[in-house]
Structures are given as structure tokens and as C-alpha cells.
């Protein structure tokens, strides 16, 4: 309970589909059992790349802003957008820099590589070890539940609409079994030249 990872609560999930990827998060911000806010999104956009952050809320905000600074500097220096793969390595090296005093976050990345057109997702532990998954990545206080729902609902080569339904059901049903997550959700469906953001109401308890 006193783990920094489970003080504020929250959940995030990313999934691969056919020529598309999805990333979704809940909206709860809490202090242990007390819910403080029901509008605390955990997904941040960096051009072609989407970064989901769960864990200690203050670290979520700080890491999101640090990455904003780093990606902006990258764009100015290199006169190009950062690719999901490069972003993954940037996040990894940034987290490992704090090896002995880590940010208490569990990041998730989703995006489509502009050059290859291929979907990309990955997840990290709090010190930057990358998990390159071909199917889905989960993080947050509802990660156990998300593993169960994703493993049960996900299948290969889902189209954008089916992927939206799958990721939404996986998230909604997982957070309903986690007291620290829920209170609505954001879902991004990322296609090659289109991104659809949907807001899910979900259970408000």
C-alpha cells in the first residue's frame, strides 16, 4: 500500500492491430482510497509517438514534461519528428539515468513508424528495461487484471474499429476490478494518417 506505484492508482494499456495501434488509460487520480480527481489523463503525445505513464502522479507529470523538453530539443536539432523506436530508447536511457533513485512510473509507448509504416508498442520497468511486445502492453495498479482481459480478448490483425472495442473492453473491465483505477477512460486509435481519440465514461465508482 505504501509503494509509490500504488498511492495514486491508474491503468494504461497499448495494443497492436492490423496497420494500427491503440493506447488507452483511465482518468482517476487518488490519494490511497480517496479519489481526488476524475480528469487525470495518463497519455501524452509527442508527434508520431504516444506515451502512457502510470505510477506516482508527481513523477508521471515530471517525466511527461521532461520527455516533452527532450523531444522538442530533438525536433529542433534534427529537424524531424522522433520515431517510436527512437523515443523508446530515449525513454529507456532517461529512466536508467535514475538507476538508483528511480522515477516511480511504468511507461508504455505506442505509435506507427513513419518510415516503415509498421505499428510499434513497448513497455518499460521504472529503470528503463524495455519490453518489446508483439501483442499488448499493460501497466498500472490494474496490470494483473489487464493481463487477464487482454490475454482473453486480444487476437491478431484486428482492424481499427475492432481494436477500439477490444482495448476499451479490456481496460473498462480490468479497472472495474481495481479499486484504485477507473472513473472514465481515454482511448487513442492510431492509424497511418489518422488518430481517433475517444472518451469513455465508464463506471463512476
Amino acid at each position: 500500500m505504501s509503494s509509490p506505484f500504488s498511492i495514486n492508482g491508474g491503468a494504461c494499456v497499448a495494443m497492436v492491430g492490423k496497420d494500427c495501434v491503440a493506447i488507452a488509460c483511465d482518468l482517476r487520480l487518488g490519494l490511497q482510497a480517496l479519489t481526488v480527481s476524475n480528469n487525470f489523463p495518463k497519455i501524452f503525445n509527442y508527434g508520431d509517438v504516444y506515451l502512457g505513464l502510470t505510477g506516482l502522479a508527481t513523477d508521471v507529470s515530471t517525466v511527461a514534461e521532461t520527455m516533452r523538453y527532450k523531444v522538442n530539443m530533438y525536433r529542433l536539432r534534427e529537424e524531424r519528428q522522433i520515431s517510436p523506436q527512437t523515443m523508446a530508447n530515449l525513454v529507456s536511457s532517461s529512466l536508467y539515468e535514475r538507476r538508483f533513485g528511480p522515477w516511480f512510473v511504468s511507461p508504455v509507448i505506442a505509435g506507427i513508424n513513419h518510415t516503415t509504416g509498421k505499428p510499434f508498442i513497448c513497455g518499460f520497468d521504472s529503470i528503463g528495461c524495455i519490453d518489446f511486445a508483439k501483442d499488448f502492453i499493460v501497466s498500472g495498479t490494474a496490470s494483473d487484471q489487464l493481463f487477464g482481459t487482454c490475454e482473453g480478448l486480444w487476437e491478431p490483425d484486428l482492424g481499427p474499429e475492432d481494436l477500439f472495442e477490444t482495448v476499451s473492453q479490456a481496460l473498462l473491465n480490468a479497472v472495474d476490478r481495481d479499486a484504485l483505477s477507473g472513473w472514465g477512460a481515454h482511448v487513442y486509435i492510431i492509424e497511418k494518417d489518422k488518430v481517433t481519440k475517444r472518451l469513455l465514461k465508464g463506471r463512476q465508482d
Binding site: 536539432r77 534534427e78 527512437t86 530508447n89 530515449l90 529507456s92 536511457s93
Partner: peptide
């Protein structure tokens, strides 16, 4: 390379 796990583009190295 230690940051992005790839080698710098030519212009970046030149700079």
C-alpha cells in the same frame, strides 16, 4: 548512441 541506441546522422555529428 547511448541515448537513442542508434548512431548520429551526419549533420548532427558534424555539429
Amino acid at each position: 548512441k547511448r541515448i537513442y541506441n542508434e548512431y548520429p546522422p551526419t549533420r548532427i555529428l558534424v555539429q
